[in-house]
Design a protein around this nucleic acid. Sequence first.
DNA 1: AATACCCGCAACCGCCACTCG
DNA 2: GCGAGTGGCGGTTGCGGGTAT
Length: 325
Amino acid sequence: MGRSPCCDENNLKKGPWTPEEDQKLIDYIQKHGHGSWRALPKLAGLKRCGKSCRLRWTNYLRPDIKRGKFSEEEENTILHLHSILGNKWSAIAGHLPGRTDNEIKNYWNTHLKKRLIQMGIDPMTHQPKTDLFSCLPQLIALANLKELLEQTQLTHNLQYLNNLLQQPSVIANNSELADALNMTNLMPTNQEPNPYFSKNFPKELDQKKVEMSNFFHVENTTVLGGSQPLQQQVTLMNAQNKDDCEVVGLCQMGLVSDKSSSSTWNPLPSMMDTSGGNNTNSQENSTTISYGGGHGGGDGGVGSYKWPDFLFDDSFLEENLEEIC
DNA sequence: AATACCCGCAACCGCCACTCG
DNA sequence: GCGAGTGGCGGTTGCGGGTAT
Protein backbone atom coordinates (compact mmCIF):
# COMPACT_ATOMS: atom_id res chain seq x y z
CA MET A 1 0.00 0.00 0.00
CA GLY A 2 0.95 3.67 0.01
CA ARG A 3 4.18 3.88 -1.85
CA SER A 4 4.08 3.92 -5.56
CA PRO A 5 6.63 1.85 -7.36
CA CYS A 6 9.25 4.09 -8.78
CA CYS A 7 12.03 4.24 -11.28
CA ASP A 8 14.05 1.44 -9.78
CA GLU A 9 11.51 -1.03 -11.09
CA ASN A 10 11.27 -2.38 -14.63
CA ASN A 11 14.60 -0.91 -15.72
CA LEU A 12 13.12 2.53 -15.87
CA LYS A 13 15.57 5.25 -16.75
CA LYS A 14 16.82 7.75 -14.21
CA GLY A 15 18.95 10.84 -14.39
CA PRO A 16 18.98 13.79 -16.75
CA TRP A 17 16.39 13.96 -19.48
CA THR A 18 17.43 13.98 -23.10
CA PRO A 19 15.93 16.39 -25.63
CA GLU A 20 14.24 13.43 -27.30
CA GLU A 21 12.55 12.42 -24.08
CA ASP A 22 11.48 15.99 -23.46
CA GLN A 23 9.96 16.19 -26.90
CA LYS A 24 8.07 12.94 -26.45
CA LEU A 25 6.65 14.16 -23.17
CA ILE A 26 5.69 17.54 -24.59
CA ASP A 27 4.08 16.02 -27.63
CA TYR A 28 2.06 13.58 -25.62
CA ILE A 29 0.79 16.08 -23.07
CA GLN A 30 -0.06 18.63 -25.74
CA LYS A 31 -2.15 16.03 -27.54
CA HIS A 32 -3.72 14.16 -24.66
CA GLY A 33 -3.06 16.05 -21.47
CA HIS A 34 -1.17 14.29 -18.76
CA GLY A 35 -4.13 12.28 -17.49
CA SER A 36 -2.81 9.62 -15.17
CA TRP A 37 0.85 10.25 -14.58
CA ARG A 38 1.32 6.61 -13.80
CA ALA A 39 0.03 5.55 -17.18
CA LEU A 40 1.61 8.38 -19.12
CA PRO A 41 5.16 7.06 -19.64
CA LYS A 42 3.96 3.91 -21.30
CA LEU A 43 1.50 5.75 -23.50
CA ALA A 44 4.08 8.34 -24.43
CA GLY A 45 6.77 5.77 -25.13
CA LEU A 46 9.01 6.83 -22.30
CA LYS A 47 11.06 4.55 -20.09
CA ARG A 48 10.49 6.74 -17.09
CA CYS A 49 8.28 6.47 -14.07
CA GLY A 50 5.22 8.68 -13.84
CA LYS A 51 6.65 10.62 -11.03
CA SER A 52 9.72 11.52 -13.02
CA CYS A 53 7.53 12.62 -15.94
CA ARG A 54 5.38 14.78 -13.69
CA LEU A 55 8.40 16.46 -12.15
CA ARG A 56 9.99 17.06 -15.50
CA TRP A 57 6.80 18.60 -16.83
CA THR A 58 5.90 20.73 -13.83
CA ASN A 59 9.42 21.95 -13.11
CA TYR A 60 10.84 22.36 -16.56
CA LEU A 61 8.72 21.70 -19.61
CA ARG A 62 5.48 23.44 -18.75
CA PRO A 63 4.95 26.22 -21.29
CA ASP A 64 4.06 28.86 -18.71
CA ILE A 65 7.28 28.52 -16.79
CA LYS A 66 9.29 31.67 -16.41
CA ARG A 67 13.04 31.15 -16.59
CA GLY A 68 15.84 33.46 -15.64
CA LYS A 69 16.74 35.63 -12.74
CA PHE A 70 14.32 36.47 -10.01
CA SER A 71 13.20 40.06 -10.01
CA GLU A 72 13.38 42.29 -6.96
CA GLU A 73 9.63 41.96 -6.54
CA GLU A 74 9.87 38.22 -6.69
CA GLU A 75 12.65 38.15 -4.13
CA ASN A 76 10.69 40.36 -1.82
CA THR A 77 7.62 38.20 -2.25
CA ILE A 78 9.58 35.07 -1.42
CA LEU A 79 11.08 36.66 1.68
CA HIS A 80 7.74 37.96 2.79
CA LEU A 81 5.87 34.74 2.21
CA HIS A 82 8.61 32.64 3.72
CA SER A 83 8.48 34.71 6.88
CA ILE A 84 4.81 33.85 7.09
CA LEU A 85 4.57 30.38 5.60
CA GLY A 86 7.98 28.90 6.23
CA ASN A 87 9.15 26.20 3.82
CA LYS A 88 5.79 25.89 2.09
CA TRP A 89 7.33 26.18 -1.33
CA SER A 90 4.26 25.22 -3.27
CA ALA A 91 2.23 27.84 -1.42
CA ILE A 92 4.88 30.43 -2.12
CA ALA A 93 5.05 29.37 -5.74
CA GLY A 94 1.32 29.97 -5.96
CA HIS A 95 2.01 33.67 -5.55
CA LEU A 96 4.73 33.76 -8.16
CA PRO A 97 3.28 33.05 -11.58
CA GLY A 98 5.60 31.03 -13.76
CA ARG A 99 7.87 29.99 -10.94
CA THR A 100 7.94 26.44 -9.62
CA ASP A 101 8.23 25.38 -6.04
CA ASN A 102 11.46 23.60 -6.87
CA GLU A 103 12.96 26.69 -8.40
CA ILE A 104 11.94 28.84 -5.46
CA LYS A 105 13.28 26.28 -3.04
CA ASN A 106 16.59 26.17 -4.84
CA TYR A 107 16.79 29.94 -5.01
CA TRP A 108 16.07 30.20 -1.33
CA ASN A 109 18.70 27.64 -0.38
CA THR A 110 21.41 29.01 -2.64
CA HIS A 111 20.85 32.75 -2.41
CA LEU A 112 18.31 34.16 -0.01
CA LYS A 113 19.09 31.91 2.92
CA LYS A 114 22.79 32.64 2.70
CA ARG A 115 22.12 36.31 2.42
CA LEU A 116 19.99 36.38 5.54
CA ILE A 117 22.62 34.43 7.44
CA GLN A 118 25.28 36.90 6.40
CA MET A 119 23.02 39.67 7.59
CA GLY A 120 22.86 38.03 10.98
CA ILE A 121 19.26 37.01 10.54
CA ASP A 122 17.97 33.58 11.30
CA PRO A 123 16.54 32.37 7.97
CA MET A 124 13.93 30.28 9.69
CA THR A 125 12.55 32.83 12.12
CA HIS A 126 13.47 35.95 10.14
CA GLN A 127 14.61 37.42 13.41
CA PRO A 128 18.08 38.62 14.34
CA LYS A 129 20.22 35.84 15.62
CA THR A 130 20.72 35.67 19.35
CA ASP A 131 23.62 33.32 19.06
CA LEU A 132 26.70 35.17 20.19
CA PHE A 133 29.07 32.77 18.55
CA SER A 134 27.62 33.59 15.18
CA CYS A 135 28.47 37.22 15.85
CA LEU A 136 32.10 36.46 16.49
CA PRO A 137 33.46 38.36 13.50
CA GLN A 138 31.65 41.43 14.69
CA LEU A 139 33.02 40.97 18.18
CA ILE A 140 36.52 40.64 16.83
CA ALA A 141 36.05 43.93 15.05
CA LEU A 142 34.99 45.44 18.32
CA ALA A 143 38.10 43.99 19.88
CA ASN A 144 40.20 45.81 17.32
CA LEU A 145 38.40 48.98 18.19
CA LYS A 146 39.00 48.34 21.80
CA GLU A 147 42.75 48.22 21.42
CA LEU A 148 42.77 51.68 20.00
CA LEU A 149 40.24 53.02 22.38
CA GLU A 150 42.35 51.97 25.29
CA GLN A 151 44.26 55.23 25.06
CA THR A 152 41.10 57.20 25.60
CA GLN A 153 38.37 57.45 28.08
CA LEU A 154 36.21 55.54 25.68
CA THR A 155 37.92 52.44 26.97
CA HIS A 156 35.73 52.51 29.98
CA ASN A 157 32.73 51.75 27.89
CA LEU A 158 34.25 48.63 26.55
CA GLN A 159 34.77 47.66 30.13
CA TYR A 160 31.02 47.77 30.41
CA LEU A 161 30.74 45.53 27.39
CA ASN A 162 33.27 43.20 28.85
CA ASN A 163 31.38 43.07 32.08
CA LEU A 164 28.25 42.21 30.24
CA LEU A 165 30.01 39.47 28.37
CA GLN A 166 31.23 38.12 31.67
CA GLN A 167 27.73 37.51 32.89
CA PRO A 168 27.11 33.81 33.40
CA SER A 169 23.99 33.95 31.29
CA VAL A 170 26.03 35.25 28.41
CA ILE A 171 29.02 33.01 28.59
CA ALA A 172 27.28 29.91 29.82
CA ASN A 173 27.34 27.19 27.24
CA ASN A 174 29.61 29.26 25.07
CA SER A 175 33.02 28.01 26.05
CA GLU A 176 34.22 28.26 22.48
CA LEU A 177 33.13 31.85 22.41
CA ALA A 178 34.85 32.56 25.69
CA ASP A 179 38.06 31.11 24.28
CA ALA A 180 37.71 33.15 21.17
CA LEU A 181 37.11 36.31 23.13
CA ASN A 182 40.17 35.64 25.20
CA MET A 183 42.16 35.24 22.03
CA THR A 184 40.99 38.63 20.84
CA ASN A 185 41.92 40.22 24.10
CA LEU A 186 38.40 41.47 24.54
CA MET A 187 37.96 39.95 27.93
CA PRO A 188 38.36 42.43 30.73
CA THR A 189 41.30 42.71 32.98
CA ASN A 190 39.45 45.09 35.21
CA GLN A 191 36.06 43.86 36.35
CA GLU A 192 35.05 47.15 37.89
CA PRO A 193 32.37 48.88 35.88
CA ASN A 194 33.25 52.47 35.28
CA PRO A 195 30.40 54.87 35.95
CA TYR A 196 32.27 57.71 34.38
CA PHE A 197 31.16 57.25 30.90
CA SER A 198 27.43 57.16 31.09
CA LYS A 199 27.33 60.48 32.91
CA ASN A 200 30.40 62.37 31.79
CA PHE A 201 30.83 61.76 28.14
CA PRO A 202 33.01 64.60 26.92
CA LYS A 203 30.92 67.21 25.19
CA GLU A 204 33.56 67.88 22.56
CA LEU A 205 32.97 64.42 21.27
CA ASP A 206 29.35 65.07 20.48
CA GLN A 207 30.03 65.82 16.85
CA LYS A 208 32.25 62.80 16.53
CA LYS A 209 29.60 60.71 18.11
CA VAL A 210 27.33 61.66 15.27
CA GLU A 211 29.97 60.72 12.74
CA MET A 212 30.58 57.39 14.35
CA SER A 213 26.89 56.86 14.67
CA ASN A 214 26.43 57.49 10.99
CA PHE A 215 29.17 55.05 10.24
CA PHE A 216 27.98 52.22 12.38
CA HIS A 217 24.25 52.49 12.53
CA VAL A 218 22.04 50.22 10.50
CA GLU A 219 18.52 51.33 10.29
CA ASN A 220 15.67 48.93 10.25
CA THR A 221 15.56 47.62 6.76
CA THR A 222 12.46 47.04 4.79
CA VAL A 223 12.91 44.22 2.37
CA LEU A 224 9.43 42.91 2.07
CA GLY A 225 7.93 45.31 -0.31
CA GLY A 226 7.32 47.70 2.51
CA SER A 227 4.92 45.40 4.20
CA GLN A 228 7.11 44.03 6.89
CA PRO A 229 10.27 45.38 8.40
CA LEU A 230 13.05 42.90 8.39
CA GLN A 231 15.31 43.57 11.28
CA GLN A 232 18.83 44.00 10.16
CA GLN A 233 20.30 43.96 13.58
CA VAL A 234 22.69 41.47 14.91
CA THR A 235 21.54 41.24 18.44
CA LEU A 236 24.19 41.13 21.08
CA MET A 237 22.90 38.54 23.46
CA ASN A 238 20.46 39.99 25.92
CA ALA A 239 21.20 43.58 25.03
CA GLN A 240 18.23 43.97 22.78
CA ASN A 241 16.96 47.40 23.52
CA LYS A 242 18.13 50.86 24.15
CA ASP A 243 18.14 50.40 27.89
CA ASP A 244 20.45 47.49 27.62
CA CYS A 245 22.51 49.53 25.30
CA GLU A 246 22.92 52.14 27.96
CA VAL A 247 24.06 49.51 30.39
CA VAL A 248 26.78 48.62 28.01
CA GLY A 249 27.51 52.25 27.39
CA LEU A 250 27.73 51.91 23.66
CA CYS A 251 25.06 54.47 22.98
CA GLN A 252 27.08 57.10 24.74
CA MET A 253 30.16 55.94 22.96
CA GLY A 254 28.52 56.72 19.72
CA LEU A 255 29.06 53.25 18.45
CA VAL A 256 25.36 53.04 17.87
CA SER A 257 22.68 55.54 17.24
CA ASP A 258 20.71 56.72 20.16
CA LYS A 259 17.38 56.61 18.42
CA SER A 260 14.83 56.33 21.10
CA SER A 261 12.06 56.08 18.56
CA SER A 262 13.53 52.93 17.17
CA SER A 263 11.93 49.79 18.46
CA THR A 264 15.01 47.79 17.75
CA TRP A 265 18.57 48.59 18.09
CA ASN A 266 21.87 47.46 16.70
CA PRO A 267 24.85 47.33 18.96
CA LEU A 268 27.24 46.39 16.22
CA PRO A 269 28.60 47.96 13.09
CA SER A 270 26.69 47.32 9.95
CA MET A 271 27.54 44.69 7.44
CA MET A 272 28.06 45.86 3.93
CA ASP A 273 27.52 44.68 0.46
CA THR A 274 30.94 43.57 -0.62
CA SER A 275 30.02 41.94 -3.83
CA GLY A 276 30.86 44.95 -5.92
CA GLY A 277 29.39 45.75 -9.27
CA ASN A 278 30.30 42.57 -11.04
CA ASN A 279 27.93 40.32 -9.24
CA THR A 280 25.92 38.84 -11.99
CA ASN A 281 23.32 37.43 -9.78
CA SER A 282 20.97 39.96 -8.37
CA GLN A 283 22.66 43.10 -7.43
CA GLU A 284 19.72 45.27 -8.20
CA ASN A 285 17.27 42.68 -7.16
CA SER A 286 17.72 42.74 -3.51
CA THR A 287 17.03 44.50 -0.30
CA THR A 288 17.55 48.11 0.38
CA ILE A 289 19.94 48.80 3.14
CA SER A 290 20.67 52.05 4.80
CA TYR A 291 24.08 52.84 6.14
CA GLY A 292 23.89 55.52 8.66
CA GLY A 293 21.86 58.64 9.01
CA GLY A 294 22.28 60.65 5.87
CA HIS A 295 23.85 58.12 3.61
CA GLY A 296 20.72 56.35 2.61
CA GLY A 297 20.49 53.00 0.99
CA GLY A 298 20.88 53.81 -2.61
CA ASP A 299 24.50 52.94 -2.89
CA GLY A 300 24.24 49.68 -4.63
CA GLY A 301 22.21 46.68 -3.83
CA VAL A 302 22.81 43.81 -1.55
CA GLY A 303 24.51 40.82 -2.93
CA SER A 304 26.85 39.66 -0.25
CA TYR A 305 26.69 41.03 3.23
CA LYS A 306 29.57 40.99 5.50
CA TRP A 307 31.56 43.31 7.57
CA PRO A 308 33.77 45.49 5.51
CA ASP A 309 37.36 44.38 5.62
CA PHE A 310 38.55 47.80 6.55
CA LEU A 311 36.85 47.40 9.90
CA PHE A 312 39.49 44.84 10.66
CA ASP A 313 42.28 47.02 9.45
CA ASP A 314 44.30 48.64 12.19
CA SER A 315 45.48 51.45 10.00
CA PHE A 316 41.93 52.39 9.19
CA LEU A 317 40.94 52.35 12.79
CA GLU A 318 43.95 54.35 13.85
CA GLU A 319 43.27 56.94 11.26
CA ASN A 320 39.63 57.36 12.07
CA LEU A 321 39.81 57.05 15.79
CA GLU A 322 42.57 59.58 15.93
CA GLU A 323 40.23 61.98 14.27
CA ILE A 324 37.45 61.08 16.60
CA CYS A 325 39.35 61.12 19.83
C1' DA B 1 47.54 22.87 -18.44
C1' DA B 2 46.01 20.06 -14.87
C1' DT B 3 43.82 19.44 -10.72
C1' DA B 4 41.00 20.61 -6.79
C1' DC B 5 37.35 22.88 -5.02
C1' DC B 6 32.95 25.29 -4.94
C1' DC B 7 28.34 26.27 -6.22
C1' DG B 8 23.87 26.06 -8.56
C1' DC B 9 20.34 23.41 -10.14
C1' DA B 10 17.86 19.40 -11.97
C1' DA B 11 16.35 15.29 -10.40
C1' DC B 12 15.42 11.81 -7.01
C1' DC B 13 13.67 10.02 -2.56
C1' DG B 14 10.54 9.29 0.94
C1' DC B 15 6.68 10.75 3.32
C1' DC B 16 1.98 12.48 3.59
C1' DA B 17 -2.71 13.52 2.15
C1' DC B 18 -6.39 12.68 -0.66
C1' DT B 19 -9.57 9.87 -3.44
C1' DC B 20 -11.98 5.94 -4.61
C1' DG B 21 -13.84 1.32 -4.49
C1' DG C 1 -14.04 2.37 8.02
C1' DC C 2 -10.25 0.45 5.55
C1' DG C 3 -6.72 -0.25 2.25
C1' DA C 4 -4.78 0.56 -2.33
C1' DG C 5 -3.47 3.82 -5.63
C1' DT C 6 -2.01 8.28 -6.89
C1' DG C 7 -0.49 13.03 -6.74
C1' DG C 8 1.96 16.43 -4.32
C1' DC C 9 5.36 18.32 -1.31
C1' DG C 10 9.75 19.19 1.05
C1' DG C 11 14.39 17.53 1.86
C1' DT C 12 18.42 15.87 -0.14
C1' DT C 13 21.71 14.34 -3.56
C1' DG C 14 24.95 14.45 -7.10
C1' DC C 15 26.27 16.06 -11.63
C1' DG C 16 28.32 19.54 -14.33
C1' DG C 17 30.09 24.03 -15.07
C1' DG C 18 32.86 27.69 -13.27
C1' DT C 19 36.65 29.32 -10.55
C1' DA C 20 40.82 29.05 -7.86
C1' DT C 21 45.30 27.10 -7.10
